[in-house]
Nucleic acid binder design. Sequence first.
DNA 1: AGTACGTCCTGATCGC
DNA 2: TGCGATCAGGACGTAC
Length: 250
Amino acid sequence: MPGRAFTGADIRWAKSVRKPSLEEFVLGLRGSRIQAVQRRAKYILLPLDTGSTLVLHLGMTGGLILQHQDQPSHPMVRHCFFLDDGRGLCFLDPRKFAKLWLAADASEMFRLLGPEPLEAGFTAEVLARALAGHHIPIKALLLEQSVVAGLGNLYADESLYLAGIHPLRRAAELSGEETTRLRNAIVAALSGAVAQYDLGRADPSLEPPIKLIAWTIPRKLGAPCPRCGGPIAGIRVRGRSTYLCPRCQI
DNA sequence: AGTACGTCCTGATCGC
DNA sequence: TGCGATCAGGACGTAC
């Protein structure tokens, strides 16, 4: 895709466009050339030769398909970005949770994001500083993108399970040893999911990819904990469904 | 300032 | 078996 230019865009669900206005978004895209495809946290970035950046957030259920413009599009395609080679970058989004931006300054847009958990800068010390002074449940803090960039609800549960830490523990009250365990668990959960996804990509029939991820902790009430055999519990933390093992996570 | 919660959406799943 | 009700969640706005 890098090197291709946009000839236009068909935005079928206007609410997805966050900034700027729909008109400016479409006008700003037309004729601009894609320079690269990048990622920051849960955002996909397409820097353009105009200096602006097309930013995509897939939400929970979003996906991208590159196909010829005359091919019939899937009914869940909410938008299509037309390329100058006759193809279209189609944006599937059944639940309409995805978001689009045309950012004049992408670095400004991501100024408040925390460290990338799979990069070297994400150390136990960095995590410890992020937790300090916060009295909210550790699970709620893990979902703050300013603390760790890119952790979602299921990954937070998985990380806390692997670390043996109860999701309702107050963030600032974790010991240094627990913080290190949590840091390592976050890295393990994410890199494990990436590895599973890469394996699954070899077989497109296994889509959607989220189904590929085999979580260590069962996301089912009463299911046996793989570590101790006890029943998995379900609670809500800040309105988010949360699964844990009350015996292993303290 | 720090914390909590409602809102948007619709496919999948649950319970009667 | 069928159908209506409920659940799921990322980021932002609003409220306390």
